[in-house]
Each structure stands twice: as structure tokens, then as C-alpha cells.
Simulated assay, not measured.
Amino acid sequence: MHFLCASNDLAEGHSRAFSVAGIALFGVRRQGTVHLYRNRCPHRGIPLNWAADSFLDDSASLIQCAHHGAQFLIESGECITGPCAGEWLEALDCREDSQGIWLTD
């Protein structure tokens, strides 16, 4: 397991970038649950964000690729609009405990 951050460092309705063993990932907290994905758009294989920790659309209800506007469901990573519609972000297993948020192997 790899420690990512303390629980209060990923607030409800926000996203945050992480790097573990050279792999870029990001987490989003929605309705108290943390969803963790590899930071790689299925359209071009590039990072989703331009600005640090900025992975959500203006309403904070969808993950959005800053490069081509693809939008993904937070809970599943499914692309619902944009050039990669029907494709999925790579979900990663995580858990949260009293120490914080962890990437599980």
C-alpha cells in the first residue's frame, strides 16, 4: 500500500493529483467516497489536467479533460461526452482509514 494523503487533504467535491512510483494519479471525493484514477485520458493518453489538482468541470459534478473537453462520471470513470465517449478512465483501488487515503496494490 502507498499512503496518498490525510483524509482532510481531499475535501468533498474536490480533486487532487498524486504520484506513486512515477505513475500519475488523481483522487476525487464525492458523497464522502474517494474515487481514484490513473491520470491518463483514454483519447490521447495524456494527463487530464493543465493546472495542479484541477480535474473537475465547473460544477464539480464530472471529471473533465482540460485538453479536449471529454467528461467522465466520477463514480465509474466512464466517458459520457467528448472524443472518447464510451471509454473509461483506469480506476485504481484505494481505501481510507483513520490515517488517511491509501492506494492499495
Rank of each mutant, 00 (worst) to 15 (best):
P42N: 06
F72N: 05
F18E: 07
L10K: 04
T81K: 06
Q71N: 13
H2L: 07
G22Y: 04
G77I: 04
G32L: 02
V28Y: 09
T81R: 09
I46T: 10
I46K: 04
F3C: 10
S54P: 00
P83M: 07
Q31W: 03
Q99A: 15
A21P: 02
R40G: 03
Q71V: 14
T104D: 15
C94I: 06
G100V: 09
C5M: 09
I80A: 08
H68E: 15
A6D: 14
D93L: 06
D105E: 15
N39T: 00
S61R: 03
H67N: 14
C41H: 03
H14N: 15
L62N: 09
G82S: 08
S19M: 11
E87Y: 02
A66E: 05
H68R: 04
S15E: 11
D97V: 07
G82W: 02
C84G: 12
Q31M: 05
Q64S: 08
S7R: 09
A85G: 02
A66M: 05
Q31R: 08
S98H: 11
A85P: 00
E78A: 09
L62K: 11
L89N: 00
A66N: 05
I63K: 00
E87H: 06
G45W: 01
A51C: 05
S61A: 07
L48M: 07
W102Q: 11
Y37A: 02
S7A: 15
P83A: 06
M1F: 13
R44M: 14
E78D: 12
S15R: 01
H68G: 12
L25T: 01
G22F: 03
L48C: 12
L10S: 09
C41D: 10
E75V: 01
H35E: 08
V34C: 10
F55Y: 15
L25E: 01
G13P: 11
I80M: 10
C5E: 12
S19K: 07
A91D: 11
F72G: 04
G27N: 06
R29M: 13
L89A: 00
L103P: 10
I80G: 09
T104S: 13
D97N: 14
I74E: 13
I23R: 12
I74D: 13
F18W: 06
A70P: 02
G86I: 04
L25D: 01
C65M: 03
S61D: 13
G77R: 01
G45S: 02
F3T: 09
P47G: 10
L4R: 08
L62E: 12
N49D: 14
G32E: 08
H35Q: 06
L73F: 11
D53T: 03
T104V: 15
A6V: 13
L103Q: 12
H2I: 11
P47S: 08
D97T: 07
C84F: 04
G86H: 03
A17E: 10
S76P: 09
H67E: 10
G13L: 07
G27F: 04
N49A: 14
L62C: 13
G82A: 06
S59E: 15
R40D: 09
S61G: 01
R40L: 12
N39R: 00
D9T: 03
L4C: 15
E87D: 11
S19D: 10
P83L: 06
R29C: 15
L25S: 01
F72A: 02
C41M: 06
E87Q: 12
S54Q: 13
W102S: 14
Q71H: 12
